[in-house]
Write a protein that binds this DNA or RNA. Structure first.
Length: 195
DNA sequence: TATACGATGCACT
DNA sequence: GTGCATCGTATAG
C-alpha cells in the first residue's frame, strides 16, 4: 500500500491544485514499526499566498505562521479556540505563505487507535472536522514542520476520482474572504465535516 | 505586561 | 439552533 508516495515536488504547485488533488489520497502517520495510522483525505481547503485575507500568512510572517513560508511538503499545525489543533500541508515554494487545511478524512488503518484517541466508536466521526482529524491522528504542535517524506508522515496515492465527483465550494468557519470557492470535498461522502 | 480573539466541537435548548 | 469552553498568539501599551 505504501509504494506510491507522493513526491515532495507535488506540494510546490499552486495551492488550489494541491488541495483538489489531495482528495482521495492517503494521509499516513508512522508512529513506530507496529503502529501506522492512515486515512483517505475527503475534504480540504486552500489558503492562498496572495489576495486571501483568511490565510494566516496573508498579513506578514509571524512566529506562528513560519511553517507556511517554508518550501511545500511540510506540516503546519496550530492551536485554535483553546481546545483544538488543525493540521495543514504547506504548499508552494519557499517564501510564499500558503497551505492546505485537512478538514476531514476516512479512516483506513489504525482505526482502533483513532477510536482511543477520540474516545468514540463511530467510524465516520473519527476524522470529521479539522480538530477531530488532528485528534484522531494524535497530532499536536510537536509535529509542526514535519516533512511528508514517508519517514514520520507521508501522502500516498490511493483513490482516483473523476473531476465531477469533487465538489468545489466556499470555505467553512472563517470571517474573511468567505466568498472564495476554495473548499473541496468528495461528493456525497458521509465523511465530510458538514454540507 | 495585558488583552482580545480565532481555519472548532460539543453540550444543551 | 444557540452558547461557550479554553489558551496560544498577535498586537498594543
Amino acid at each position: 500500500m505504501f509504494e506510491n508516495i507522493v513526491p515532495i515536488d507535488f506540494f510546490k504547485q499552486e495551492t488550489e491544485i494541491v488541495a483538489k488533488k489531495l482528495i482521495g489520497k492517503l494521509f499516513v502517520r508512522f508512529i513506530d514499526e507496529k503502529q501506522v495510522l492512515a486515512a483517505e483525505i475527503i475534504e480540504t481547503e486552500a489558503y492562498l499566498p496572495i489576495n486571501d485575507p483568511a490565510c494566516h500568512a496573508s498579513f506578514k510572517k509571524t512566529k506562528r505562521n513560519v511553517p507556511m513560508f517554508e518550501n511545500g511538503g511540510i506540516l503546519y499545525i496550530y492551536f485554535i479556540y483553546g481546545n483544538h489543533y488543525c493540521a495543514n500541508i504547506v504548499t508552494e515554494k519557499e517564501g510564499q505563505g500558503a497551505a492546505v487545511l485537512i478538514r476531514a478524512a476516512k479512516p483506513v488503518l489504525g482505526i482502533e487507535l483513532m477510536k482511543i484517541n477520540r474516545g468514540i466508536e463511530q467510524l465516520e466521526m473519527l476524522c470529521k472536522g479539522p480538530g477531530n482529524f488532528a485528534k484522531a491522528f494524535g497530532l499536536d504542535k510537536t509535529h509542526n514542520f514535519k516533512t511528508l517524506d514517508g519517514f514520520n508522515f507521508g501522502i500516498y496515492d490511493y483513490k482516483n476520482y473523476k473531476n465531477e465527483e469533487i465538489v468545489q465550494t466556499t470555505r467553512v468557519g472563517i470571517k474573511k474572504a468567505v466568498d472564495l470557492p476554495l473548499r473541496y470535498y468528495l461528493k456525497d461522502s458521509k465523511f465530510i465535516s458538514k454540507k
